[in-house]
């Protein structure tokens, strides 16, 4: 089976060690975690983890069951674009010569992003949206000098009445 990207939302009790336990379920089965976002929910006894991971799809079912079984895990659900909103944010620091500045700003405008810092030879762009959009924009910015790039990793929420 080919490796595929999977996005999983895990609702956990906010207890010490829970992140290690969750990470271990993946690593023991040779899954590579691509991105991981953890923060407490609106009730701070609980936390939300959104994990994107790559690996054999056959193992994924086992991973979800093993995650659900952890004492501190409330539930764990796999999501995709069709049933949920999946977004991420990137901060991109681009260096430029003055002659290039207008071109870069055009790209920023095209992707409906904004600049959050500017000097006479660099700017920081804040980009939010689907991962594909971020990828496309970063691709265009490669023509200039990307000094640093930070992506948050995916966060998601199920649509309508479904639970995240």
């Amino acid at each position: 089976m080919t490796d595929k990207n999977h996005t999983i939302s895990i609702f956990v009790v906010n207890k010490p060690g829970v992140l290690m336990r969750v990470a271990q379920v993946f690593s023991r089965r040779c899954y590579n975690i691509d991105s991981l976002v953890v923060s407490s929910g609106f009730d701070d006894r609980f936390a939300r983890m959104t994990i994107t991971a790559q690996g054999d799809a056959g193992n994924l079912d086992q991973i979800k069951k093993q995650l659900s079984k952890l004492v501190d895990v409330m539930h764990c659900i796999e999501h995709d674009d069709s049933n949920s909103i999946i977004k991420e944010m990137a901060l991109i620091k681009v260096g430029f010569k003055l002659t290039q500045r207008a071109e870069i700003l055009q790209i920023v405008e095209h992707f409906a992003c904004k600049t959050v810092d500017m000097t006479n030879n660099s700017m920081v762009i804040q980009a939010t949206g689907d991962s594909a959009k971020l990828d496309a924009m970063i691709e265009l910015l490669r023509d200039y000098k990307i000094i640093e790039l930070v992506r948050t990793g995916k966060v998601l929420m199920a649509r309508g009445d479904s639970e995240t």
Binding site: P16, G17, M20, R21, Q24, R28, V71
Partner: peptide, 16 residues
């Protein structure tokens, strides 16, 4: 030992 034993326990605690 909390960390070392994680893969071989059903659950564990470090008392704070």
């Amino acid at each position: 030992v909390f960390g070392i034993s994680l893969p071989v326990v059903k659950h564990s605690y470090l008392v704070k």
